[in-house]
């Protein structure tokens, strides 16, 4: 390599050299990177513990140079609670999908947030069960076709998609809750900022923090990666408005 070439973009220290198993067009990889960059920039990688979910990102621990626990389906916030309570000096985060967090793990996330557990949750919402092959999730859009809603989500029978950020921000306990997206570079910049702030608040021992990231699943949505990013903008963002839902510095209204 010529000596006048310098590296301007490299893999975050917190990430391992392993190649991810994610499908083409999936945004898990981008979100992983944002988590890793945040840990690097805050200098906490060596005292961090991640909690892996059950879902597509079950193998997340293969992609990080960070200690990890793998949780039963939906229970990551309970594991994070246990770990953080006995090691408050460490940085603890859960990384969960919509089936994991908003369906089977609804109880655990609500109570962890309400107790004000001082860990960070990265909630990846792609409106479908990915790993099990495209079944309806609590966040599946009205009329969206899945393998268990082949005629489209019928809101008369199964209700409307659950808006987790809105729901958790109704809790009186102070928290940081933001919804972001990663389908355009501009959105990705805002997403990274939110994720870093979530970790920063944990470093400061301030509050529970959660960033909901709207994500794509071209494979199970049955459309191209490019069409997927457009669908996020046209269908998901209107129903799941982006923005800050709760911030410990924001005065209560």
């Amino acid at each position: 390599m010529s000596s006048n070439l310098i590296t301007t973009f490299k893999r975050p220290e917190s990430m391992s050299d392993n190649t991810t198993h994610y499908c083409p067009g999936c945004t898990h990889g981008i979100i992983h990177r944002m988590v890793a960059e945040s840990l690097d920039e805050l200098g906490v990688s060596g005292r961090s513990v991640g909690v892996a979910p059950v879902g597509c990102s079950v193998l997340i621990y293969n992609y990080f140079n960070v200690d990890f626990i793998e949780a039963p389906h939906g229970r990551a916030p309970a594991l994070a609670t246990g770990f953080k309570r006995v090691r408050p000096d460490m940085i603890v985060f859960t990384y969960q999908g919509d089936g994991d967090l908003a369906s089977i793990g609804m109880g655990e996330i609500v109570h962890a947030a309400n107790r004000g557990e001082k860990f960070t949750t990265i909630f990846v919402n792609n409106a479908i069960y990915g790993m099990t092959g495209g079944q309806m999730a609590p966040t599946t859009m009205p009329n969206q076709k899945t393998t268990t809603s082949p005629g489209g989500r019928d809101t008369d029978k199964v209700g409307f998609p659950i808006r987790m950020s809105e729901m958790l921000s109704t809790l009186k306990t102070p928290s940081y809750i933001a919804r972001v997206a990663v389908h355009t570079p501009l959105h990705a910049i805002a997403a990274k900022k939110a994720i870093k702030r979530a970790f920063q608040l944990q470093v400061e021992n301030r509050c529970f923090s959660m960033v909901e990231v709207l994500s794509t699943c071209p494979t199970n949505w049955g459309i191209t990666p490019e069409a997927s990013t457009k669908w996020v903008e046209s269908d998901m963002v209107p129903y799941y408005p982006l923005g800050l839902y709760s911030d410990p510095d924001r005065e209560e209204t």
């Binding site: 513990v49 909690v51 626990i69 949780a71 039963p72 229970r75 309970a78 594991l79 994070a80 609670t81 246990g82 770990f83 953080k84 309570r85 006995v86 090691r87 109880g107 655990e108 109570h111």
Partner: peptide, 17 residues
Amino acid sequence: GESEVAVGNMIFGAAAS
């Protein structure tokens, strides 16, 4: 904890320490 389901998993997380 909010349930025994959660408690079982809290000790799981804590034990990993």
